[in-house]
Simulated assay, not measured.
Amino acid sequence: MIKTLAASLTALALASLTAPPAAAEPRGPEALLTELRTLYQQTGAATDAYNETGERLSAQRAEVERLTERLAGTRTDLARARRLAGRLAAGQYRSGGVSLPPALRLLLGEEPGQALHDETVATRVVAAQAAEIDRLVANERRADALATAAREALAAEEALAEERRRQRDEIHRRLDELTALLAGLTAAEAADLAALELADIDEAQRDLLASGALGDDGRPPSPAGERALTWALGQLGKPYAWGAEGPDAFDCSGLTSRAWSHAGVTIPRTSQGQWQELPRIPLSELRPGDLVIYHEDASHVGLYAGDAQVLHAPRPGTEVTLDPVAVNPVLGAVRPG
């Protein structure tokens, strides 16, 4: 059963017949369907970009933490080296000799417990310690520079994340306006719109099958692909939710990434990342568990389920479902493992 926009339009209109119609300029079902598709694609793309930024933010924060710890360790080593240098200098001043720690005596080839009063050896020890301090000072400067650069990069990423949030919220606002418009449709108008979308999907599916692009469509899944698809089929009927990765709700790439993680394969979190980073395959080689990527901006994804169907979390107001593979314009396909 196709659970796209069409699946909910009639119920939405019937539920709102008693409400006053939204103040919107009348438009035909073709124009309304085009606007709906554009908004849903934009929303998917904006959410995908937001999720991608979140991934980068997590990585950048981890890098800042790593470099900060490295800087702290370097400073600890530097403080220890400076204390030792101070003890060496004080020992030379008081007695003209140096009492070295056992580890340094071994490094210099001296017998444990032997007092080192030779001026040449003492000078060599102090010079070596000064060189060690210089090395640690240089390391501290490098670590400090890296930590500063990481913090600056994190600040830039956080600014980008805020911008992505604003973009996403603006599209949500437009979707709210469109929902109000849909609520003002009569049952007959909603039925016309639903029928138009179903007809478009049926036509796209017929064209895809007639083209022979799917080949014989009888290829078995890989063991990992079968595990991923089997797990995903268990999520049928769960609702779509922004940025959700389960277990109670999913967005499109949250479903695919979680499915493949259950198969023991880690893949990018977003549909755009999946398209960019996973090996691409022709549609003629699709097998169950592979990922089908949609739209020119790779803003939607589903798991191929065989029989020219795709399992996916379509968009707001829908559930995880099986649809014809041509439910959206197909960009291509990738195989995680």
Score class of each variant (00 low, 15 high):
S99F: 03
Y50T: 07
A115D: 11
T47D: 14
S95R: 13
G91Q: 13
A79P: 04
A46R: 07
A45Q: 10
T74Y: 05
L71S: 08
E30Q: 14
S58Q: 13
L88S: 06
A85R: 11
R56H: 11
P29N: 05
L107P: 00
R37V: 00
G96C: 06
E55R: 03
T68G: 13
L32W: 09
R37H: 10
G44S: 12
T68S: 12
S99N: 09
A46G: 07
A62F: 03
T68R: 09
R56V: 13
S95P: 00
G113M: 06
A46P: 11
L108C: 03
V98D: 02
T38P: 00
H117L: 14
R105T: 14
Q92A: 08
T76I: 11
L116P: 09
E110D: 02
G54W: 10
A49L: 11
P101K: 04
A59D: 13
T38D: 11
E111Y: 06
L106I: 12
G86P: 04
T74E: 13
R80K: 14
E110V: 07
G113N: 02
T53C: 14
S58A: 15
E35N: 07
L104G: 01
V98S: 10
L100C: 04
T68L: 08
R56I: 11
A31W: 00
G44W: 00
L36F: 03
Y93S: 13
A89V: 09
D77Q: 15
Q41G: 03
A85N: 09
G96F: 01
T74K: 08
E111Q: 15
P112R: 10
A81C: 02
T38Y: 00
L107G: 05
P29H: 07
L106P: 00
L78H: 03
L104Q: 12
G86V: 09
A85Y: 01
T74L: 12
R61N: 06
P112W: 12
